[in-house]
């Protein structure tokens, strides 16, 4: 069976409103953020992640957002990767997926 060549997608992450309040961040929230980071490391090890990161603003700064640029053979698989992100699973963040084209690679 032939697999489709990988395409590139980007998902843009935003904190859900309750977590834009630094007062809402406790140990459980911090654990979700750690799992979210580990998830990216896992994707990177499987060659499914190009890069991930976030703007360096505090959580209550409205400009804060994060991104993950991923490889997937189809949009459905990219969506699955995004929905399996612990930050999405645990309702810490919401995200939007877009097809993405890399102009200058790392």
């Amino acid at each position: 069976m032939q697999t489709a060549p990988p395409q590139t997608f980007i998902y843009v992450l935003k904190l859900k409103p309750p977590f834009q309040n630094p007062e809402s961040w406790d140990e459980a929230t911090q654990k979700i953020a750690t799992d979210h980071w580990q998830y990216f490391i896992d994707l990177k090890a499987k060659n499914q992640l190009v890069l991930a990161g976030r703007t360096a603003y505090p959580v209550d700064d409205k400009r804060i957002f994060g991104i993950a640029i991923i490889y997937a053979s189809t949009q459905a698989i990219a969506e699955q990767i995004m929905h399996n992100d612990p930050a999405i699973v645990n309702h810490l963040m919401e995200a939007e997926l877009h097809p993405f084209s890399i102009a200058v690679p790392l």
Partner: peptide, 9 residues
């Protein structure tokens, strides 16, 4: 923020 988070911990 860090002190606040530590207090909650």
């Amino acid at each position: 923020r860090e002190l606040h988070r530590y207090g909650r911990y």
